[in-house]
């Protein structure tokens, strides 16, 4: 559908702040990212890094006291025009046209995001009827077909089930069916497998990969699990306290991580090794700084073992060859 390197979504200098009574939380603080059509962008980050708020900002679902205060989210519409999602009224017609139809989202905990009072069929059909000109009967057929595609057995029966009667993995499949039923061009998946067992996680990842290949959509997947990123992503952004610290292709990032945070993260997870090679886990010292605190200079400096005087100033974002971006004074 696209020619050349026009990104599907181009994020520039995005800032989303929460104005609470206790102070301002800079959840997303100057993020630049591109999501390319048909590719998978992975975002790694720990709790409080702002990765979920980034996703919600693209969907314009950030609730007060939070709001997008600055930046652009340029979305390339199918007709060759770009539209800045950051300027749209979050409750307006224009964003509602896009949300759910062009860009949809799946969440971490499917039990929380499905309405327990409606059958999964009703919830999927609602989405179809809002965005497509079909009769309820046709919508139901589309829904059944979609449930079948995401691997739910006996979809004709399952469509009338309530969320509570499905298992965790099946619920996540139903969520995916609901998100994909309008053939979106971008799927945002926020920790889609975190609540699931490894075996089910493997199933869901395979399913996402398959559907992505068939539908040619772009995916932005948010997770704290490095393994999940390695499995599915093409490009990776490492997020820490609202900023992208490093961005590269997945192979480049795993083979040649540059930022101290990325390096520390890789070293702190347990790998399956032979007993004779077993080492103590390396630990990142300290905790993530308080979100209300305004950190001067590099955000990671307080925990970084390479930190120097220079880190009291905000590091620039350096682009190395092959599009590898890193925000650290070590590479200036």
């Amino acid at each position: 559908m696209f020619v050349g390197n026009v990104p599907l979504v181009q994020i520039r200098g995005l800032r989303t702040y929460f104005y609470t009574d206790d102070g301002v939380v800079r959840a997303v603080d100057g993020v630049d990212l591109a999501i390319h059509p048909g590719k998978v962008l992975g975002i790694i980050g720990e709790t409080g890094s702002g990765k979920t708020v980034l996703a919600l900002s693209i969907m314009r679902l950030v609730q007060p006291p939070g709001r997008v205060v600055e930046g652009n989210i340029l979305y390339a519409q199918g007709n060759g025009k770009q539209i800045d999602l950051a300027l749209l009224d979050p409750k307006g017609r224009a964003i509602r046209e896009i949300r759910g139809k062009h860009i949809s989202m799946i969440f971490q905990e499917p039990m929380v995001s499905l309405n327990p009072l409606y059958t999964i069929g009703e919830q999927i059909v609602e989405n179809i009827l809002v965005h497509q000109k079909v009769t309820p009967k046709e919508a139901r057929d589309i829904a059944i077909h979609m449930l079948e595609r995401v691997g739910i057995p006996e979809p004709e029966k399952r469509i009338d089930d309530y969320p509570h009667s499905l298992s965790g993995g099946m619920r996540q499949r139903a969520m995916i069916a609901m998100a994909l039923v309008c053939q979106p061009r971008l799927l945002i998946a926020d920790e889609p497998t975190t609540a699931l067992d490894v075996t089910v996680q493997a199933q869901i990842l395979e399913l996402l990969k398959d559907l992505q290949r068939q539908m040619g959509m772009a995916i932005m997947i948010i997770t704290h699990n490095l393994g999940v990123i390695a499995e599915i992503a093409d490009f990776v952004g490492v997020m820490y306290l609202g900023k992208i610290m490093e961005y590269a292709t997945v192979v480049e990032l795993f083979e040649n991580p540059l930022h101290p945070y990325t390096k520390d993260l890789f070293r702190s997870i347990p790998y399956c090794v032979r007993r004779k090679n077993k080492k103590r886990l390396e630990v990142i010292k300290g905790d993530i700084p308080d979100p209300y605190a305004k950190v001067e200079g590099c955000l990671y400096a307080s925990r970084c073992s390479w930190a120097s005087k220079k880190c009291l100033e905000d590091p620039p974002s350096i682009e190395r060859d092959t599009g590898h971006m890193v925000r650290c004074w070590l590479y200036v």
């Binding site: 490894v198 089910v200 493997a202 395979e206 393994g227 890789f266």
Partner: peptide, 24 residues
């Protein structure tokens, strides 16, 4: 075996065939 093969691999180049357990 199936459980172990489901662990996500922290190596984007790894091409091992995964044993996908059917169902729940």
């Amino acid at each position: 075996e199936a459980l172990l093969s489901a662990i996500p691999r922290v190596n984007p180049k790894s091409k091992m065939q995964r044993i996908l357990l059917k169902g729940d």
